[in-house]
Design a protein around this nucleic acid. Structure first.
Lengths: 344, 344
DNA sequence: TACAAAAGTGGAACCGGTTCCACTCCGGAT
DNA sequence: ATCCGGAGTGGAACCGGTTCCACTTTTGTA
């Protein structure tokens, strides 16, 4: 176990001062005679020298690192989002420190502290909705924060990248209404989250447009964690007048909801028309293939990274940016027109 | 944008020297009078002081950080593995820097360099199989390396955590043979990887035990990336004497393989008995639910982290450790006994 | 009561980079 | 011939922690 060479080793070997080596390392930080530059580069290569990131960060006051704070990677949505973000970041020479919150504000707070310790220059996060002062403090300390997927209204100064939640919910609801359904259930995220609220609004808007009354019992805002989606589906099916259409708009609960339907032997789309908000290709392989609102993860990842990096380089105008990307509706075979026989 | 307090600010406010504050920060690094300790803690809390990680790392020579190097997070196997590892690591106060290789040795090499710059004290990786000298150098520089899922035979000194590949392949093959199948196809990873080779060996062993000849054309070792699984399935189905059983042992190719079967309208299990190596709960929701070799991700994650942390603390005896965890076979409804009618 | 060992403390060097600044050259303009 | 400005260079301070060591104050024991 030998130890790695330092900038002083390089300087000594090349017969120059550390200042010169540093200037070679960071072009534009000062002049270096072409001959010496050559020699220094040769020595660097010969010794296999690489600058220690910690030293650089200490001196610079901040790290070429961003934090990615998501709920958990078991959710394909976050997994694929993380995948894209890590990929995009590496192209810019930026590393990603990953933290998961399990939707727990305490864990989220811990994560933020840790990222602060690491002097990350940016954070991309799906916030739990709490820790408002903590997020504000982070920004106050010069960390560029971008919220992705969700937002926190109280934090006016944060950049946000999300899909068109209102519109997506509205379109899927309209689609089912167009097929003749009048009792459409909605399983979505908690009302305490921006996504939960927007999707409910979209759902309501579609009903209003069609002059259809909304039965509040058909709207289920359930937690992201656990089997709450499945439970909600169970209770919806047990209603005296069960829904004939169902939209599962809580990505994290798609799986448990669908499991409940499959295990209950519900015939899709004969007994129930189904649309899910999804990021999982498996929906296509089911029988029948499920109609989905496909979330454009690449766009979410690219935009959020662009924002963070742009802020880091100060290339962006002041003031928060809100980017909403369109989510495609992919009708497949899990929806059917409402017929008399569909009512069981 | 104010700036954060330093250890010297704390020392000045508390009326002590930085040494004392440092000793309070790191218990067991020296004595501190109880009264002063109290006061220092009070000031730390009052100022909201947090030690900068970069400064600590520079001084310590290594970071409380580990690198996690996997192919990509779109693969649920790696996503869930990463999830568990991040979770376990945080319990130990260790951060995880995530890098993806896309199975590209160049990207892998880059990642290792970057991790080296960051002075990570450990790396958990699914190696591409190349960069042998680079891995060796990493170890030489004192970085604790643990390979998970795969291994590189040339690197004798590395800890490895994997599932019982040989045994898993053997058992699933035996199961199909037990159902009367004689033409069983195997789609697995490249022969250049340890997993690919072990699974082929297990498959062969099951055939030998049953005194069954192995048709080499039924063994397809395909790359991890791309649609190679689907292509292999297509070509298998097009054989003059197509298989009646199929084992997809390449996790990354399960999805494309199954898609090919579904799109081809193959009846499962009537026309083809199917077993997949899987980490995706969706297999249970398909019709029919697929029989799977379930990979115990928690165990892989826990063990690999235990190894890395153990090495970091020097708590582990010298010499490489090989940990193989058992993977459960979950028979569901995608396999059926071979009957005359099954032969199309 | 004396004296060694242990507890408690602060000064200063160190980790490995970056950056400011003073200094030496040199060529070109006056 | 003189002066000026910029290219090129190295010394040294600095970033914010940790740690070694010398020193003073307790404490315990003979």
């Amino acid at each position: 176990m030998k130890k790695a060479p330092t900038i002083r080793d390089v300087a000594a070997t090349a017969g120059v001062s550390v200042s010169v080596v540093s200037r070679v390392l960071n072009p534009d930080s000062g002049p270096v005679a072409p001959a010496k530059r050559q020699e220094v580069l040769r020595v660097i290569d010969e010794l296999g020298y690489r600058p220690r990131a910690a030293a650089r960060e200490l001196s610079a006051g901040h790290a070429l690192t961003i934090g990615l704070v998501v709920t958990d990677l078991s959710n394909p949505f976050f997994a694929r989002l993380a995948d894209r973000i890590v990929w995009e970041a590496r192209g810019h020479g930026v590393q990603v420190v990953l933290m998961t919150t399990q939707e727990d504000p305490h864990l989220e707070a811990d994560s933020l502290d840790t990222l602060l310790d690491r002097s990350v220059s940016g954070v991309i996060a799906t916030p739990t909705g709490r820790n408002i002062e903590k997020w504000a403090r982070l920004q106050d300390l010069g960390v560029n924060v971008v919220f992705v997927d969700r937002t926190i209204e109280e934090l006016a100064d944060v950049d946000v990248v999300s899909i068109e939640n209102f519109d997506s919910a509205r379109r899927s609801t309209e689609y089912l209404i167009g097929l003749g359904h009048t009792r459409i259930a909605l399983v979505t995220g908690p009302r305490s989250t921006s996504t939960g609220r927007s999707r409910i609004s979209g759902y309501r808007a579609a009903h209003e447009d069609a002059s259809l009354a909304v039965d509040p019992l058909l709207i289920r805002d359930v937690p992201f964690r656990g089997d709450s989606g499945g439970d909600a589906v169970g209770s919806l099916l047990a209603m005296s007048q069960p829904p004939t259409g169902l939209i599962v708009a809580n990505t994290a609960q798609v799986q448990s909801s669908v499991r409940r339907l499959v295990q209950g032997g519900i015939k899709i789309p004969e007994e129930l028309s189904l649309i899910v908000f999804d990021d999982n290709p498996w929906t296509e392989l089911m029988s029948p293939p499920l109609s989905v609102i496909r979330q454009p993860l690449d766009m979410l990842a690219v935009h959020s990274l662009e924002l963070v990096l742009g802020r880091m380089q100060g290339k962006l105008p002041d003031g928060p940016r809100l980017i909403e990307v369109k989510a495609d509706f992919l009708p497949r075979n899990s929806c059917a027109p409402l017929t008399q026989t569909a009512i069981h």
